[in-house]
């Protein structure tokens, strides 16, 4: 609760920092637009007009892309900086010592200190892509549908966050300079396409082992009302918050287990 009370304070603080580097934020937003153009260009170049992949048409794939951006962007605001630098900065360089001395639980303190509002550009971009795709698909928006979308996106973001925290916590056991973030981040690229294009083992990996696909593909499939094919499961929207809680709790659990093993580098 204390961390929640501090959240607005830290958000204001990080906003001030971001405003010091406005050009950097603007360039980041421009980069997001270019990245979206890249994805659209690739899918548009390869996908036959009117063609569908297991029920996924061009604008369905775009919706999935946008939904993934909203979920990833939300998680990135709170977790991405931790994800990229935890092992090297906090374990090897010993900055975790500072957090251990502060009157706030370590994990919330770590997250609050590393908020990065630049990733709001990803969220905004995702919302725009979703809105355009929904318009092209003639999706009708109502208050309930908007609430469902927000809940699904927040759940997906929590799943990402739980996974990130779980992964960086491995640094307590296996010390190294490079973060395990990159392979996991790379896996995230796979989830911008329908999972059905991948061989069974890859689908299983992205659903059960590293549920990045679970976070975005299944909610989007359900939201768009696309029938599951080829043995692909359907996940009811109400299950997503529960799954998110489970993954987030798992991530926090691994972190606290690892924290018991932490030995300061003394630097």
């Amino acid at each position: 609760m204390r961390a929640l009370a501090l959240l607005p304070v830290f958000l204001a603080l990080h906003l001030k920092v971001m405003l010091q580097y406005r050009a950097d934020f603007v360039m980041g937003a421009v980069g997001q637009v270019i990245y979206t153009l890249l994805s659209v260009a690739f899918i548009g170049a390869v996908m036959m007009p009117g063609a569908a992949l297991d029920g996924w048409r061009f604008w369905d794939v775009m919706f999935l892309l946008g939904f993934g951006d909203v979920a990833f962007g939300l998680s990135a605001v709170f977790f991405f900086r931790v994800f990229l630098s935890f092992e090297s900065a906090y374990i090897i360089q010993g900055r975790l010592d500072q957090l251990l001395l502060q009157p706030l639980a370590v994990l919330p303190a770590l997250i609050l200190r590393n908020i990065d509002l630049n990733h709001l550009a990803v969220v905004i971009k995702g919302v725009v892509v979703v809105a355009v795709a929904a318009h092209m698909l003639d999706l009708a928006w109502s208050a309930a549908r908007v609430a469902e979308f927000v809940l699904l996106a927040a759940s997906a973001a929590a799943i990402y966050g739980g996974l990130y925290i779980g992964f960086v916590s491995l640094g307590f056991w296996f010390r190294r300079r490079a973060s395990l973030a990159r392979p996991v981040l790379s896996l995230n690229y796979l989830t911008q396409y329908p999972l059905t294009i991948y061989p069974g083992p890859v689908q299983a990996l992205l659903t059960f082992v590293l549920p990045l696909g679970l976070a975005t593909f299944y909610p989007a499939q359900s939201f768009l009302g696309i029938a599951a094919t080829n043995g692909v499961a359907e996940v009811a929207p109400w299950m997503m918050p529960l799954l998110a809680l489970a993954v987030a709790a798992f991530g926090a659990g691994v972190f606290h287990l690892g924290l018991r093993r932490y030995v300061s580098s003394g630097t």
């Binding site: 690739f42 899918i43 548009g44 170049a45 390869v46 996908m47 036959m48 007009p49 063609a51 569908a52 992949l53 297991d54 190294r176 490079a178 973060s179 395990l180 990159r182 392979p183 981040l185 790379s186 896996l187 690229y189 796979l190 911008q192 396409y193 059905t196 294009i197 991948y198 890859v202």
Partner: peptide, 30 residues
């Protein structure tokens, strides 16, 4: 870690191209 990261990042393109070819018999669009 670095080596593993790259193939994971670009595999999606390959599978997407192959999936389109498998579904449409040929690649579409441009």
């Amino acid at each position: 870690i670095e080596f593993v990261s790259y193939p994971l990042a670009f595999m999606g393109y390959f599978f997407f191209v192959l999936a389109m070819a498998a579904h449409g018999g040929a690649i579409g669009g441009d």
